[in-house]
Write a protein that binds this DNA or RNA. Structure first.
Lengths: 147, 147
DNA sequence: TATTGTTATACTCTATAACTATA
DNA sequence: TATAGTTATAGAGTATAACAATA
């Protein structure tokens, strides 16, 4: 019976934080589906893209840029190494300079293209100025003091 | 040595989806800290708030509104029951009308106040119109077709 | 037949503490 | 002493499949 169907009153729909969480979750699922086509998860794709823009950086620096803890970088880097998408070279005795293999570079380029398609899919209606304004508002959230 | 410090180039910082993810994550951590003061996690608080606005709804309907699967609602509702923040009444033989206990209602009110403080903390600079515009943009993301 | 609540389970993501070897 | 990488582990959050009782 669809008879006594109640249209739910949801005060959370008025909350910017809640809307951001829902919107972000939806976008992540959609991005994950797109990236699955090239066998990458969003975080793996982010690492490749970051590495293409910054050849030779260490895994700790990648973690710093992506807000991933050192400990959690280990299996991520190991997986990309196993798949021969990235390579290591000793920088000093304790750190390694990471770089993309040719295969990894190709995937990084594809991943970046998919990310742009993804953004266009969700925000294609926005003008350049509107897009930049939204970007600035989101960066503003991250600029707020942490305590 | 801070000498050869590289300022990272991060193309993801230009991506709206990435910024939303980072901003949303930061806001969730901050909200969780605030709600910890009244011993609620964000999802628990959301359930109480939703229940205050919709007395008598079932746990499946709450899940529908909050994008939480039926199976995952079970331990959430059980926990709130154990803490006597909500109560059940048989609606029909298979579903229960949920309601807030007096304690639960008090917490729901506090939670909603904390959520408003939280929003103001991150978006207090926005005018009413700017706030509404941002809200609409985020709702627009959720209005996009899922496939 | 479809739905509500439930159990069991698994997978991902994230967080912390501690170790090693190097700087 | 501090840092890079690592190991181990624990806690959330989320996903699926299957079942019983009821509609």
């Amino acid at each position: 019976m669809q008879d006594t169907e109640i249209k739910l009153e949801n005060p959370l729909e008025q909350r910017l934080g809640y809307q951001m969480r829902r919107a972000s979750g939806l976008m992540m699922v959609n991005l994950a589906e797109r990236l699955a086509g090239i066998a990458l998860r969003p975080t793996e794709a982010a690492i490749l893209v970051l590495l293409r823009a910054n050849p030779g950086i260490t895994q700790t620096k990648i973690g710093g840029a992506l807000a991933i803890q050192r400990a959690n970088m280990v299996p991520l880097i190991a997986g990309l190494m196993t798949r021969k998408l990235i390579a290591r070279q000793a920088a000093d005795g304790r750190s390694h300079a990471l770089s993309l293999t040719p295969t990894g570079r190709t995937l990084a380029v594809k991943a970046e293209a998919l990310m742009l398609e993804h953004e266009k899919y969700f925000f294609g209606e926005l003008s350049g100025a509107e897009r930049e304004h939204l970007l600035q508002q989101l960066r503003g959230v991250r600029a707020v003091p942490s305590d």
